[in-house]
């Protein structure tokens, strides 16, 4: 038996030897094809141009529910999830989804958009800002600060740093500042619905009013004619302006120092390249000292 098997093996070997096997020669050399391929790929990539940015929500690793959950936790607020979702959904998104469903011939479940919440939120923000600043500054200053804080750019800046940019549901990409500002307003309204007025006040104070940190009120607000404004602040009192110092008169570096006095008490000091300008800066200084109670 063993002989037979041996003979058979020998026969197959002989047969195999006669078959022409393709010669594969393994050589370990520098791979000369790598560089040309990479060059060609680079050339084609340059021809096509840079890749257009895509919204984060189109990535594979994206979970909207988790993002919404984290949004509330990040700000340490308990949002009603349904209202928050509504606050983040813009009308453009709803119409786009509707069109998509129509094209495919599917039934469209209406999604609520944040149109109403934006209005509510805007009013809420204004109210909170005025409440917070009203006790500390005169009315004109409060209005100026309110205007500064509720500009589209400011609200969009705050909204961006709360992480709204990625979770906003809107048709446009990249998201515009106006949309971000509107979303921030809507989020404030959503907070009011979920937690009430008190939390909203805190929220606006922490995130919006904190933007005034390190900023001088008088950088934001300046009256057109400070001297007249000062006179309106101190009715029935005579304000006397005196030239305290002057230097380099009749040169390009001329400067004057003017002091404003009332009953021989100094109200404010100001500098300027002419007496008139110095008077105005002195009046600004006086207004500042009056409102700070220096």
């Amino acid at each position: 038996m063993s002989f037979c098997r041996h003979a058979a093996l020998r026969a197959t070997r002989l047969v195999l030897r006669q078959v022409q096997t393709p010669q594969i020669t393994e050589t370990r050399n520098i791979k000369r094809w790598v560089a040309p391929v990479l060059k060609q790929l680079k050339r084609r990539m340059d021809q096509v141009g840079p890749e257009a940015p895509t919204p984060r929500s189109s990535y594979l690793e994206w979970n909207y529910e988790a993002e919404i959950f984290a949004f509330g936790k990040r700000l340490r607020e308990e949002f009603d999830r349904k209202v928050l979702k509504q606050a983040l959904t813009h009308r453009s998104y709803v119409t786009r989804e509707e069109d998509k469903a129509k094209e495919k011939g599917l039934e469209f479940e209406t999604i609520e958009c944040n149109h109403q919440l934006i209005k509510q939120g805007g009013a809420l923000i204004s109210q909170c800002v005025r409440n917070e600043l009203g006790g500390k500054y005169p009315k004109d200053v409060v209005e100026a600060l309110h205007g500064h804080l509720t500009t589209v750019d400011m609200l969009a800046h705050v909204g961006l740093h709360l992480g709204l940019k990625d979770i906003v549901q809107t048709a446009e990409f990249p998201v515009e500042n106006e949309t971000l500002a509107d979303t921030f307003k809507a989020v404030v309204a959503a907070l009011e619905v979920s937690q009430g007025q008190e939390r909203v006040q805190l929220f606006v104070k922490d995130f919006l009013l904190s933007q005034l940190n390190g900023k001088d009120v008088y950088d934001v607000w300046a009256p057109d004619s400070p001297l007249d404004y000062l006179r309106s602040l101190l009715p029935k009192q005579e304000i006397e302006s005196r030239l305290c110092n002057k230097s380099a008169v009749n040169t390009i570096l001329a400067n004057y120092q003017v002091g404003l006095y009332c009953n021989k008490k100094l109200l404010g000091l100001g500098w300027g390249e002419s007496v008139e300008i110095a008077k105005d800066t002195a009046a600004l200084d006086a207004i500042q000292r009056l409102s700070y109670g220096k």
């Binding site: 690793e61 993002e67 984290a70 990040r74 700000l75 340490r76 800046h157 705050v158 961006l160 740093h161 709360l162 992480g163 990625d166 104070k205 922490d206 995130f207 009013l209 904190s210 933007q211 940190n213 390190g214």
Partner: peptide, 18 residues
């Protein structure tokens, strides 16, 4: 500090990690 973080409330600036 981005956007006066910590003046009112501290917000962790890392929003997502993969």
């Amino acid at each position: 500090t981005p956007s006066q973080n910590g003046v009112g409330r501290y917000v962790c600036q890392l929003q997502r990690v993969v």
